[in-house]
Design a protein around this nucleic acid. Sequence first.
RNA 1: CGGGAUGUAGCGCAGUUUGGCUAGCGCGCUUGGUUCGGGACCAAGAGGUCGCAGGUUCAAGUCCUGUCAUCCCGACCA
Length: 580
Amino acid sequence: MRVSEIFMPTLREVPAEAEIASHQLMLRAGLMRKLASGIYAFLPLGYRTFRKIEQIVREEMDRAGALELVMSSILPAEYYIASGRWEVFGPEMFRLKDRNKRDFCLGPTHEEIFTEIVKNEIRSYRALPLILYQIQTKFRDEIRPRFGVMRCREFVMKDAYSFDRDEEGLDVSYRKMHDAYCRIFDRCGLDYIVVEADSGSMGGSGSEEFMVKSDIGEADIAYCEKCRYAANVEKAECIPVPCCMDSEGDASAGREDVSVERVATPNVRTIEELMVFFNSRPDQFAKTLIYRADDKYIAAMARGDREINETKLKNFLGCIELELADSEAVKKITRAEVGFAGPIGLDIDIIIDREVEMMKNFVVGANETGYHLINVNVYKDFKPTAVIDLRNITDGDRCPRCGASVSISKGIEVGHIFKLGTKYSRALNCVYLDENGQERVMVMGSYGIGIARTMAAIIEQGHDENGIIWPFEVAPYHVIIVPVNQSNEVQVDVAENIYAQLMKEGIEALIDDRDERPGVKFKDADLIGIPIRINVGRKAEEGIVELKMRSSGELREIKVEDVPAEVMRIMGECMGTRGK
RNA sequence: CGGGAUGUAGCGCAGUUUGGCUAGCGCGCUUGGUUCGGGACCAAGAGGUCGCAGGUUCAAGUCCUGUCAUCCCGACCA
């Protein structure tokens, strides 16, 4: 392709709306343009890479025995009503009506539809297992679209669904998808880790996320260097750390015979303020948060320096919606201003973290504005409804597997695999007859990859101050030929010649035949991240050109006639090791 | 949805505090010329309902009210 003829609107300056590298570069390199918040159009260069990622996904899914099909993106409401998700999705679902006022939505995910198709067409155990997938546009009216293509309202996802006779079958399908995902992200050149994820209220029996390590990631990952345990912070189990037992400076610590005292603490609401007021550590306080769980209110307690893990709380309660109660509700329940809630005297359920159970003589709110209680002890002074692991794991916590210290890092979730079990097959009555003529519910799994998000993740991990550094597998073109001086006939001839040779060999090549200054061409070539650049300059007359690698910056002179062979050698080297 | 910010030419911005006559600058774009190894130079151009709607005023990009959009920070997910 000739750069003079391609639609490649590169930008010299960074659009103000873009904050992170991948977003900025996707706009600057002319890969895409925004149409509305969270809605993007892909331009030719971007779409080439997009399709290459799709193709990698397709090849690996096919290799794993999954079958591609495509559902519609506009879907009738009835299936979602049947599964209960017409309600669950809430305002996140794009809804519309047809001329007869029938309800439809733009598909946010397709579990119901796949289940429905399989249910109607498959009756026998002989037809199982079955893995179906599609690469299709999804619609979610996200509360907050973010970071360009990282979190969109319209996005393309590869979603696969497995149907098995039983749990053992599901395990096999799940493993196949897991392995396929590893191959996909390997081929994309990503540095990723697979982490245990929350399977949540979905009632699934297992779930893992494929995370690309990146500071701009929205997910927190707990990782153990020693045993390689990795989990989403939402999921990671916490080992309780005893406290309040040792502190030399605190006379009351460890003693059971002290009794609760009410202390005036005017305007002391936060843990920070309490620390100042009592001149002590945050782990000598227990915080009490009031939550609204669907229709009821509950109290949740954790040590002062801990964070409540709402996923764990939600799973324990089995509720659909969970949010911090508003201040009105808090006032009503605690009979105090926000900031003075405590467990004693509350007549709602109190769920406490395991660490709170181990605390001695600690400080809580008094449920009275301007007062706290000291020397409080669990069981002696109040009775919790339940004691569970309720907090977020943090840096330095002990690994739940091996006891070593875990560290927390950020990740971009590019893929998620999920053992669904029978949640949807049961709701939609997706059953088959086994070899004994017994009707049984199919056991399902679902498996997603965000295509554009993967693309953005590749850029996050592969860029420098000059632009994108594409791995060969997903580069829009493999080679760009740059005649340094477009008015030098020899250079132009040599460049055109090389271009023709590469095209003949089937190599995806660009030739920058624009009448631009060399600096402009070099900058654009770097910006759009083409892996190999061939500079045709001064020595063209001697039959010598330069070959420059985008990734390493390595620059060397080679003979014109060696270019095709050399390019193919490098490509073979760079792509040959992938996909295993 | 809560908190913060911003809307002026394709992109990046100034001008708004203290209202004033034809709304500026850089990049990009067009034409001609000179250039040609890391975003050239000279000359001449094109391009703007100042987000939108009301209002105040002799006069509004500037003040007031409303509204919309976009971005950032928090609860959801590929």
